[in-house]
């Protein structure tokens, strides 16, 4: 078995990996919290979120706090499954090279 085959291309990027890690342990996280957590620019974060959203790994909820927009993100069922498979593949990689 080749564990590399099971590694999800979607999570190759450190930033997408970080976004997923945060969403896995929180019911939802908003844009600004993700930005502070990952310490990246708005544009950079938005483009990675778009990629994850288009692959239906995460879902977006747009809301308001007062008059300010508050966009929160959470992981989808499919995304959770994909991320767990990716973790298992990483684990497999470490074990197989021992």
């Amino acid at each position: 078995m080749n564990p590399i085959r099971d590694l999800n291309k979607m999570f190759d990027s450190r930033i997408r990996l970080g976004i997923m890690s945060a969403l896995m342990v929180n019911a939802s996280v908003n844009f600004n919290e993700l930005k502070e957590l990952l310490d990246i620019t708005d544009g950079n974060l938005a483009s990675h979120l778009k990629t994850l959203e288009e692959s239906e790994t995460i879902k977006v909820q747009k809301g308001f706090i007062g008059r300010k927009t508050n966009t929160t993100y959470s992981v989808t069922k499919a995304g959770e499954k994909a991320f767990k498979a990716h973790l298992a593949a990483l684990e497999q990689m470490i074990k197989s090279t021992k």
């Binding site: 990996l17 997923m20 890690s21 945060a22 990952l38 684990e91 090279t97």
Partner: peptide
């Protein structure tokens, strides 16, 4: 970096992000 080191680094990054975002 070997695949193994890369995987370990990824796992550490995941753990750190989970910690930082939830605690």
């Amino acid at each position: 970096m070997s695949d193994q080191q890369q995987s370990l680094a990824d796992l550490q990054h995941i753990k750190q992000m989970m910690e930082r975002s939830s605690r």
